[in-house]
């Protein structure tokens, strides 16, 4: 029992990360609104930040900025990778939203089901 509890608290960050991931997946599949789909996609992306930053942390350490009073630092490499990922994430979100605006102009709706019924090629 104690072992299971210890295991659970030691991996709690990963469990939340996985919860965010499958929430994003669920929104992308289950919701028909295209804007909400994109928010689900960015939820999934954000969970990846957590997946990378969690193992970089050392409890009792400090941020990776050198100071002679500290000896233990978090690993800087995942931070660098996630800096890139955040900016790429917002770029893809902007492109997706621009596509949604175009779809709204062409079809008059952002609901996926209505777009399918209005699409002449699907008939």
């Amino acid at each position: 029992m104690m072992d299971a509890l210890q295991q659970f608290s030691a991996h709690y960050n990963y469990y939340i990360t996985i919860f965010l991931m499958i929430s994003g997946l669920f929104i992308v599949i289950a919701r028909g609104n295209l804007i909400k789909k994109l928010i689900g996609l960015s939820l999934f992306q954000t969970s990846v930040y957590l997946l990378y930053l969690t193992p970089a942390k050392i409890v009792g350490g400090t941020a990776p900025i050198y100071d002679k009073n500290f000896t233990v630092y978090a690993n800087p490499l995942p931070h660098v990778l996630m800096l890139t990922a955040i900016v790429v994430g917002v770029a893809t979100l902007a492109l997706g939203l621009a596509l949604v605006v175009r779809i709204k102009e062409a079809y008059g709706t952002v609901e996926e089901d209505e777009i399918f019924t209005k699409d002449p090629e699907s008939e």
């Binding site: 900025i65 978090a74 931070h79 996630m82 955040i86 900016v87």
Partner: peptide
């Protein structure tokens, strides 16, 4: 999580 640069960007 000590990722201050990432936090600022986010």
């Amino acid at each position: 999580l000590d990722a201050v640069d990432v936090a600022m960007t986010e």
